[in-house]
């Protein structure tokens, strides 16, 4: 008989490795609530002092772009190469530019 399935919710875990660095996604974890997610994330992802700060967020609360539409989504930036410094040709004798 299939038992009543009630899985602990999934959280995504972000860790700041050192002060001065951004929080970075490291993986996910199951927990009953956010507080427990932080504790479990500590046990799972920082056993060797990999972090000084942890963020957790319910996976279901994250909105992501659709890879199927990536082409269209990122298309506007494609033809704007003038946003890069190398677009501009400057004579060699001009320094510090």
């Amino acid at each position: 008989m299939s038992q009543q399935r009630k899985q602990w919710p999934l959280y995504e875990v972000f860790i700041r490795a050192r002060s001065g660095l951004e929080h970075k996604h490291v993986g996910s974890i199951h927990a009953v609530d956010a507080r427990q997610a932080v504790e479990h994330a500590r046990d799972l992802y920082t056993r060797r002092q990999e972090g000084v700060s942890i963020w957790v967020v319910r996976s279901s609360d994250i909105t992501a772009s659709d890879p199927g539409e990536a082409e269209a989504l990122f298309e506007p930036a494609k033809d704007k190469i003038y946003r890069h410094p190398t677009f501009y040709s400057i004579p060699d004798e001009v320094k510090n530019l």
Binding site: S59, S60, D61, I62, T63, A64, S65, D66, P67, E69
Partner: peptide, 11 residues
């Protein structure tokens, strides 16, 4: 998907 994003979990 009509506008904007898709919830991560769904994806």
């Amino acid at each position: 998907q009509a506008a904007g994003g898709v919830p991560l979990a769904q994806l």
